[in-house]
C-alpha cells in the first residue's frame, strides 16, 4: 500500500486531477497565471515535493500521457489538410515570417547569453530553444551541447509561450489571430501550438505548420549560427 505511487495509476491520476482542477480555476478567474499547463505543473510539483515523491515515480504513469503527444503531432497533419486552402493564400508572407522569426530566435538567444557571460556548453544547449524537443535534442548533440539542459529549456520556453504569448503579442499590437498562431508555433513549438488551438482551428493549423517549418529550418541553420557567434 505504501508503494501505490510507484504504479502507473498514480502519475496518470494526479495529472488528470491537477489538469481538471486547473481548468476549473482558469475558467472561473481570467488571470494570465491561471493557465492550465502552468497551474497543473505547479500543482503536481508541489504535491511531489510535499510528499517527498521522486519525479521518476511520478513519471511511471506520467510518461503514458506524454507518449500521446506523438500521435497528436501526427493528428496536426489532418488539421493542415482541412485548412490547406486558407493557408495557401498566405503562404509567402507566412513562410517568410516563420523563417525570419526562426533565424532571429537562434541569433538572439546566443548573443544575449554570450553578453551575459554564459558558458559555452550552456550557449550550445539553449540555441535550439524554440523547436520541438526531439528536434532540439538532435541539434544539441550535433553542436556539442548538453541534451538534458536543452530538453528542460525547450519545455520551459513552451510553457512560457503558452501562458504569456498571446498576452504579450496583443500588448505589442498583434491582434490578427493567424499571426498569433504562427508566432506561437515558431517561438514555442508544440506547447505554443496547443495555445494557438484555443484561439481557433485556423490559428492552430498555422502554429502547427510553423512548428514544422521552424524545426526543419533550425536543424539546418543552428550549427552555422553557433559557429559564427561563438
Amino acid at each position: 500500500m505504501n508503494e501505490i505511487y510507484l504504479q502507473p495509476l498514480f502519475g496518470i491520476f494526479i495529472t488528470l486531477a491537477a489538469f481538471q482542477l486547473s481548468q476549473i480555476i482558469g475558467g472561473k478567474w481570467k488571470f494570465v497565471l491561471f493557465n492550465p499547463v502552468l497551474l497543473s505543473v505547479v500543482f503536481i510539483m508541489c504535491f511531489l515535493v510535499l510528499f517527498k515523491i521522486d519525479f521518476e515515480a511520478y513519471n511511471v504513469g506520467g510518461q503514458y500521457l506524454g507518449f500521446l503527444l506523438g500521435p497528436t503531432v501526427v493528428a496536426l497533419g489532418v488539421l493542415f489538410y482541412e485548412k490547406y486552402d486558407k493557408i495557401r493564400e498566405n503562404i509567402i508572407p507566412f513562410v517568410s515570417a516563420v523563417v525570419i522569426g526562426g533565424i532571429m530566435s537562434v541569433i538572439s538567444v546566443c548573443t544575449i547569453a554570450i553578453t551575459l557571460g554564459a558558458s559555452e556548453p550552456i550557449i550550445r544547449s539553449i540555441a535550439p530553444k524554440s523547436v520541438t524537443t526531439p528536434i532540439a535534442l538532435e541539434i544539441t548533440k550535433i553542436i556539442g551541447g548538453v541534451p538534458y539542459i536543452s530538453a528542460g529549456i525547450v519545455i520551459a520556453v513552451g510553457i512560457f509561450g503558452n501562458a504569456f504569448g498571446p498576452v504579450i503579442l496583443r500588448a505589442l499590437g498583434i491582434k490578427n489571430k493567424n499571426a498569433i498562431g504562427a508566432a506561437l508555433g515558431t517561438a514555442a513549438h508544440g506547447i505554443g501550438t496547443a495555445r494557438a488551438l484555443e484561439e481557433g482551428k485556423l490559428p492552430g493549423a498555422y502554429a502547427g505548420l510553423a512548428m514544422c517549418i521552424n524545426g526543419l529550418l533550425t536543424a539546418i541553420i543552428t550549427p552555422h549560427i553557433v559557429n559564427l557567434v561563438i
Binding site: 491537477a18 492550465p36 511531489l48 513519471n59 506524454g66 519545455i155 520551459a156 496547443a194
Partner: peptide, 13 residues
C-alpha cells in the same frame, strides 16, 4: 494536446 505536455513540464523539477 495541452494535457500531454504536463508530464514534460513536471520534469522541469
Amino acid at each position: 494536446m495541452v494535457l500531454f505536455f504536463v508530464p514534460y513540464g513536471v520534469g522541469l523539477m
